[in-house]
Design a protein around this nucleic acid. Sequence first.
DNA 1: CGTAATTTTGACTCCGCTCAATTGGCGTGG
DNA 2: CCACGCCAATTGAGCGGAGTCAAAATTACG
Lengths: 247, 247
Amino acid sequence: MYAVTANKPDASPNKFEVTCSSCNMRELCLPGGLRAEDLPRMENVVYARRRLKRGEALFAAADEFKAVYAVRSGFFKTSIVDGEGREQVMGFFMGGELLGMDGIGASRYNSTAIALEDSEVCVMPYGLIEEMARELPALQRQLHAVLAREIVRDHGVMMLLGSMRAEERLAVFLLNLSKRLTRRGYSHSDFHLRMTREEIGSYLGLKLETVSRLFSQFQRDALIEVEQKHVRIVDIAGLERVLAARS
Amino acid sequence: MYAVTANKPDASPNKFEVTCSSCNMRELCLPGGLRAEDLPRMENVVYARRRLKRGEALFAAADEFKAVYAVRSGFFKTSIVDGEGREQVMGFFMGGELLGMDGIGASRYNSTAIALEDSEVCVMPYGLIEEMARELPALQRQLHAVLAREIVRDHGVMMLLGSMRAEERLAVFLLNLSKRLTRRGYSHSDFHLRMTREEIGSYLGLKLETVSRLFSQFQRDALIEVEQKHVRIVDIAGLERVLAARS
DNA sequence: CGTAATTTTGACTCCGCTCAATTGGCGTGG
DNA sequence: CCACGCCAATTGAGCGGAGTCAAAATTACG
């Protein structure tokens, strides 16, 4: 019955202490918008948690779709590989963000999700979500909102890939990262990149050498300070100006 | 109460003869997968139809989100315009395909939808869809599937924009159009482009001159025949080989 | 501690963009 | 009905931004 591929059986992980009520990611996550008295019912949907080590796959493209995942801690990338073996990174995901929604329509995931550092996710079997969404209109609304937000996010990436130059793409990338980290209580200016230059390049539609050169260029222009994976944004307004400066 | 922008009031259009049961787009549309006995209930959701003339906007970015639309006949593009005034075409839509889903999360549409020929759409107020989805699990499933399919579609575009060369992009575009037209009973090899070279270019992340040159090149290579907006695919396998030929 | 992976930087190339001129279609109005 | 003007499309010439190839430096990791 359980066709397990990249996934470990979902039944085994620690089922204890799974409380959305006490989770500080709650507002960013699927329970966002639920009233306090409905939260316990939501916890029936959050079936379990699962820990992943760096490099491990949460799910892979073509795996049987069973659940959607919420990042509890850590950092992920999702990507798809086309017939010719070329990888395209679709996105990076951090605490409170949802993974695996591209599997909903079909019975299989469309992309592969890989942990870029040791991470933990909440497992939310899709059947349970569906069921609960029929009973809790607020959850239904939030689910639809999350799906639609993913569409809007993708549109932003399409805009970036379709009509921005290399510098603009990297500026958008850094500003977006900064914004998301801020919402999670981290420094808005000082952070550690979890992904390689090649993964950034794939995401932005650039080659890794170009990404590296742009990092150096931004540093020369006193917009950021880079040392390997550590980035410090020195001049946010300057980065925003990179976007405004349509030659 | 009714903040109408690009939309005419939804109450006015012809409310007669709105039957999903007899619509030949049904299988591709939101009612797809519903059992025959549930279809009449679906018709309560399909509130009305609306006709649009070529060039007219079905909705515009930042308009109040009220409804999702299904294309009954005709052809649309959706696009977003960024702060710098640059337009990015997000997609082209034909019979049975759904428009406006990017507004679900927020209270406003994220993109603008414009008819590229005289068209007709079914108006499906989102509130009604939500309500009905709670009662009809099959509709709920289909709605989620449609949303997820949009995400998967966007991922395909991101792949295209992020890691394909110009020829490959146009080949994918033509093959995709051909496939969708075939499903709707049109010729798979002979069709009329509803959009300009500039719109194709925007969608594919290319300049209009590049699109034009590629059309000419494909014609020289005996893959297609082009005459202005009329395209005839001569060698489908050849177009597919354009993708396979990773230099 | 040694090997592999990642990052940086340089030199050169080439694909797609820019600028420009021309042609062709089509709707409008004289 | 034709002339006009406008918009779309084609094509050419030249340029430039990002890719490719290559080598060195630095770091990560078993």
